[in-house]
Design a protein around this nucleic acid. Structure first.
Length: 431
RNA sequence: UCCGGCGUAGCUCAAUAGGCAGAGCGGGUGGCUGUUAACCACUAGGUUGGGGGUUCGAGUCCCUCCGCCGGAGCCA
């Protein structure tokens, strides 16, 4: 019977079949050890010359790192083994034995080398744990929305030249139509969809042609955006803190073993629950000035400033009410102070940076047109977006969550590139 | 784009002040062992990223190109 390594404890005393790859192997004249991995875990297979046919033992000796194989054997409880069980082989069937060394065979390869071999690097234990955590984050996101009666609406990847900023777009030739662009955001489309369905979300890749190369940036990254009709600023904040807390809790409940394997400090994640602390932009600037930062009201925060703000809190912190001129054209002005807008950035703890950008959107047609002019944007490109304000316009709010930054924070990664299976960075699109 | 750094064996690195290119790991062969980053012996493995220059002599100094890494700006 074919079973997976993670389930072996249920089969103690029974005969099973394992299918997988050689993680490590050692052999001598009398005994061979095969550490077999199958994507769910690693188990040691013992092959004793004295108790198997000669062919089986010879097969075991031929194996090298990353050989694929089928093992039939008996599951035994073994306190000396890390997983508590071992398999004593009765049959070893090699499927394919490499003709050359596996390129990744020790812990101290350079990052350049590892990235060149990303397709093989994924087989290492650390990457496996991270990908399980990524999977849990994505499942947690979907489950949160489904439990809260949101509708998943998938937004296009080819778009016209509209979005958060007209620069930084990847240009594509679209047959005879001319230029189209890879989506930086699905927000404008979600605004359309929320007027149809009320509560909507998307989840998928987005693209920024920004020449950013830091530990927090990818050129292609996944974003989860949500948009809710009739939600105003305060409702939006609550939605965000509930979502982020839910994701963390979901990962703790479903992928804790992988967090432990990465030596993540779980106690810091256990504190993540609503409500999150809030600070206005203006308060943040005053606080930073007191600490000696060279920042004026109206400037946006850099990485150091964000980290300083985050250091004050154990939970993610909302920074709200940014200056209108520092933010996108579509944000609703604060009725109490038209120089600032009803928006927030959510900054993750421990220096992981901004994981959410959010705002209440302008729902008044005339005000939106005024803003487009103020930002020197081509009004004709926004015809359909303006239509949304002509037909039953209502206040609405939404946000975008950076999936890889969220993963990097939860998993405690030093660099965002490990949070996605095949990262696209400034100088790397291969493999 | 700007600032900074790196590039030497399959991998990770060393090489005093410009003076014989080395080690560990990995590979191969043999041995040995309830091993798990195994161990022991032997062994193979090099256009020092490319090009140019200075010098009696360049891995080392200079110029240039390429590749990558870190950061800034911008953002999630």
């Amino acid at each position: 019977m074919w079973v997976y390594v993670k389930d072996l404890k249920k089969y103690i005393g029974q005969d099973v079949e394992l299918r997988g790859w050689v993680w490590r192997s050692r052999s001598s004249g009398k005994i061979a050890f095969i550490n077999l991995r199958d994507g769910t875990g690693i188990v040691q297979v013992v092959v004793e010359a004295s108790s198997v046919p000669e062919e089986t033992f010879n097969n075991a000796k031929k194996l090298r790192m990353e050989s694929s194989l089928i093992v039939k054997g008996h599951v035994k409880e073994e306190p000396r083994a890390p997983g508590g069980v071992e398999v004593h082989a009765t049959e070893v069937i090699p499927l394919q034995i490499p003709h050359e060394d596996f390129p990744i065979n020790k812990p101290d390869h350079s990052i350049d080398y590892l990235m060149d071999h990303r397709h093989l690097w994924l087989r290492s234990r650390r990457q496996m744990h991270i990908l399980y955590i990524r999977d849990a984050v994505l499942k947690g996101i979907r489950k949160f929305y489904w439990e809260n009666d949101f509708v998943q609406v998938d937004t296009p990847i080819f778009t016209g030249a509209i979005g958060e900023s007209a620069g930084n777009l990847f240009e594509i030739d679209y047959f005879d139509y001319g230029k189209v662009y890879l989506a930086q955001t699905g927000q404008l489309y979600l605004e359309a969809a929320c007027m149809a369905l009320g509560r909507v979300f998307n989840l998928g890749p987005t693209f920024r042609a920004e020449k950013s190369k830091t530990r927090r940036h990818l050129i292609e990254f996944w974003m989860n955006e949500a948009e809710v009709a009739f939600y105003e600023h305060e409702d939006n904040l609550k939605l965000q803190e509930n979502l982020v807390s839910y994701i963390v809790k979901y990962v703790l409940e479903n992928a804790a073993e992988h967090l432990y394997a990465l030596k993540r400090d779980i106690s810091k994640l256990e504190k993540i629950e609503p409500p999150f602390p809030r600070i206005t932009y203006t308060e943040a600037v005053k606080m930073l000035q007191k600490k000696g930062f060279d920042i004026q009201w109206g400037d946006d925060f850099g990485g150091d400033e964000e980290t300083e703000i985050a250091k004050q809190f154990e939970k993610p912190v909302f920074v709200t009410h940014y200056p209108r001129k520092a933010k996108a054209f579509y944000m609703q002005p604060d009725p109490e102070n038209p120089d600032v807008v009803l928006c927030d950035d959510l900054i993750a703890p421990e220096g992981y940076g901004e994981i959410i950008g959010a705002s209440q959107r302008i729902h008044d047609y005339d005000l939106l047109v005024e803003r487009l002019k103020e930002f020197n944007l081509p009004i004709e490109s926004y015809d359909w977006y303006l239509d949304l304000r002509k037909f039953g316009s209502v206040p609405h709010s939404g946000f975008g969550l950076g999936v890889e930054r969220t993963i990097a924070w939860i998993a405690g990664l030093e660099h965002i590139r490990e949070a996605i299976p095949f990262p696209r960075t400034l100088y790397r699109v291969h493999p």
